[in-house]
Simulated assay, not measured.
Amino acid sequence: MPRWDIFCTVIDNYGDIAVTWRLARQLVAEHGINVRLWVDDLHPLAALYPGIDSGALRQTLCGVEVCLWPADFPDVEIADVVIEAFACDIPDNYIAAMAASAVKPRWINLEYLSAEDWVAGCHRLPSPHPRLPLVKHFFFPGFTPDTGGLLREHGLIDRRRAFQASATAQREFWTQLGISPDPAACKISLFGYENPALPALLQAWVDNPTPICCVLPDSRLSPQVSAFFGENKPWQRGNLTMHRLSFLDQDSYDQLLWACDMNFVRGEDSFVRALWAGQPFIWHIYPQADNAHHAKLNAFLALYQRGLNSGSAVQLTSFWHCWNQLPSGTLNWQAWQSTYPQLKYHHEAWVEQLIQQADLAINLVKDQ
């Protein structure tokens, strides 16, 4: 059985560990690979998968050997394939062991997701080590066949469609959350980073002519929502009813995206899961210095809008730009809502194209 090591450092959010944990589980379950996942902080992973002991040095869950990555890294047997997720630095003694091995492991730098044009040209490019007899290869996730693809477990789309076709499954899910949405309400999930546009959006939902049921998984938006409602309990004003949830594990969060009519997401992991949910969504991209994330946002919008009528494309761009603090954006909730049928049809068609491509795990395995 091939052995893979995946290294992941947790920075300030859940995205890096969320992606690597999904990848590790899929490699084990669908490709029979022996995976060891090295993580420098297990507390965020414990939020995503509550069965994890955040203090254990080693444990096996879902077939994945999860190891705490200590500052003083031990001498361990190297793997056949080594993945450094999102440009983290593999320990020096591990690299030295790789160089000393008679059979060099495949060394992959798994990059962040982007729709920018240059990604396809850089995908799989070699990067020789400046001093050691090792070569690292860049591996870029992406939305086109000439990139590494997106994480998508086998049968994910079928499970999602079955859930969305079953009123019983959805009713049971809402009951588990302790929520009874108004049948006439637009159901929205709200997950993101701090956002100055949020108060205006909440007020637009309060003034909406029809009911809105908004579900708020715990995130950096939670304090803003709490400040908006003040001492009011429950969180209900006008036609807006808010439901605050504790942090959801990955499987429950997937179902929340499936159950809602519209999803606000952030970063990379929830962004990709919103794509597979088959519903219109709004993405809060991870902010970067010098607004470098604006180019990434616009690159995705350009790709995503292909085939969408011009009027809906304008509303989509304007709303996304405002949500991401681009000066060209306008938060026009009513205009956005009016384009919903066109956006839903377009999104479903776009997903149909994406699922014709191989997923990220398959492409990684084929690349070895």
Rank of each mutant, 00 (worst) to 15 (best):
I33M: 07
W258C: 05
S252H: 08
S180C: 12
N13T: 04
R237F: 08
Y286S: 10
N232Q: 15
I95T: 14
T60Q: 08
N291P: 04
F281E: 07
D41A: 07
G55Y: 00
V81T: 14
D5C: 08
L177M: 06
W283C: 11
L37V: 00
P91R: 08
A162Y: 02
P130D: 04
D12E: 15
L156Q: 10
N195C: 13
S219D: 10
R306A: 14
V272E: 10
T175M: 08
N195E: 00
A361Y: 01
K366Q: 10
S226H: 13
Q224E: 15
C122D: 09
E77H: 10
G230V: 13
E231I: 11
W336V: 03
F73K: 06
V28C: 05
S226W: 03
V225A: 15
W350C: 11
S101E: 12
C122V: 08
G230N: 10
P223L: 04
A302T: 14
V64E: 00
G178C: 05
F281K: 10
P128H: 03
A200K: 08
R306M: 13
L331R: 06
E30I: 01
Q255L: 12
P196G: 01
A289I: 11
D16C: 06
D269H: 07
S189L: 09
V135Q: 13
L190V: 13
A18P: 00
P44W: 02
Q224P: 09
D359A: 03
A289V: 12
S180I: 14
D117W: 12
H294I: 12
Q279K: 15
I188A: 04
R152I: 01
S310N: 06
R244Y: 12
V35P: 03
G51Q: 15
P145Y: 07
A167V: 09
Y345L: 15
R160Y: 02
P74W: 00
Q342P: 00
A184C: 12
A46H: 11
S101L: 03
V272S: 07
R220L: 14
L216C: 15
A96W: 05
G311T: 15
I78Q: 06
R273W: 07
I90N: 04
A115P: 15
R266H: 03
V272H: 08
A361L: 00
G155Q: 02
W174G: 06
R3A: 12
V10R: 07
N298D: 15
R306P: 04
V135D: 01
F163D: 04
A46C: 07
I157L: 12
F73P: 04
L201C: 04
E268D: 13
F140Q: 02
N239D: 11
Q356P: 00
E84N: 06
W336D: 05
I90F: 05
L110H: 01
W205M: 15
L316Q: 03
Y49F: 05
N109G: 02
D249C: 08
E65T: 09
D12G: 06
D117G: 13
V215D: 05
K366P: 00
P44F: 03
P74K: 03
H321P: 02
V225T: 11
